[in-house]
Design a protein around this nucleic acid. Sequence first.
DNA 1: TAGATTGTTAATCGATTAACAATC
DNA 2: TAGATTGTTAATCGATTAACAATC
Lengths: 222, 222
Amino acid sequence: MSHKEISKAVIKRLPRYYRYLGELKEAGVERISSADLSSLMKVTASQIRQDLNNFGGFGQQGYGYNVQYLRDEIAKILGLDHMHNMVIIGSGHLGQALANYTNFERNGFQVVGLFDNNKDLLGTVVNGIPIRMIDELPAFLAANEVEIAALTLPKDNAKKMVPVLLEGGIHAIWNFAHTDLNLIVPKDVAVQNVHLSESLMRLSYNLKTLQEDASPADQKEP
Amino acid sequence: MSHKEISKAVIKRLPRYYRYLGELKEAGVERISSADLSSLMKVTASQIRQDLNNFGGFGQQGYGYNVQYLRDEIAKILGLDHMHNMVIIGSGHLGQALANYTNFERNGFQVVGLFDNNKDLLGTVVNGIPIRMIDELPAFLAANEVEIAALTLPKDNAKKMVPVLLEGGIHAIWNFAHTDLNLIVPKDVAVQNVHLSESLMRLSYNLKTLQEDASPADQKEP
DNA sequence: TAGATTGTTAATCGATTAACAATC
DNA sequence: TAGATTGTTAATCGATTAACAATC
């Protein structure tokens, strides 16, 4: 690897910085110090400066950070400075919801194809995109420049799709299926999992724990 | 606090253990060692044992872990041993997709109400649940035992809903809106954020980085 | 009993926070 | 210039991994 490895924790935080900088820009704020951003975002100023300095010096001593400039730089880092074409494999409710989610376009992600194996969906058009049958996918990928595949289908079907996607030149998988595709994919393919039920389980845990803490049942220390 | 604090990192991993144990159970596996589970899940055996020992000794020396028993214990820890009623606020495509997601029920989460402020949706029934107008929410929360609110609406509307939810006795918010509700909620209310566009941005970053690593453009070390 | 494997303590590694010199 | 605030090094904290004694 030619550039130094950036930790996952840092990458996790970048989109949040990006979001706050967008809101500041909307609000007409031109510059901000790490201290001010820190009190807004409830993280330490030190962390903000450390995070940003992984990518170079975006600020200026005595001044702070220029909101517009910093936001643009983060956009470049995240690869939001150009369009990413995406296909959605699995056109059930969730797949269709994603296809309808036009906000993605603002951030540079464009849904160009919808696929399913259910013949009943043939002829259905979602947000201007016709649902195609899954066996058309290889030809579609060959004919179109597609970077990302979102997988919104049952886990066994998702696994079966992987070779087809790799064959079609896909290098990024946005995985909503309840399986760890990252374990069965070559290391040059990016996978982001969105495991909704796991998120819901964590919410359940936190709910339970907060309630136990609040209840006076077992307050005595050992 | 009466019990020792469990780190977020551990909680994050529990649902994944739960999922793997479920698959092992399905496959008829009765017992498993931390070493075998470790090679299956691609984490260290040490981590598995450390994680589980936060909650007590679920294994047995020389034997390993009983799959069924361990799974049940994790279910209890996560609060999956009883039903959680959930309302969905915002009945657009994503809200409806969640309402249709019957898998949640298997894990103890039941959608009992759907709400929106769009009068055009009045009369629409999704997965057996009628969409109600948002002004009916306080009465609904008073009349029904609801623990969780999923927020699938634009960020400004989501923020406005918070006081209504708190007033209605909601203690867990599953937040799909692009705003950090955890910062505006009392500390005894659990919030889990699902920020889809942030996930997509991380995917974009990883895609970009893997491609740069693969390209021979700048291979020389400093 | 002997072998296997946990539970747990100690060592290592990585990430966060604090501090401050550099500099705008 | 003086004040403000970054960039960066050093200190702290927390999480992961390794090691091994306890024990089934």
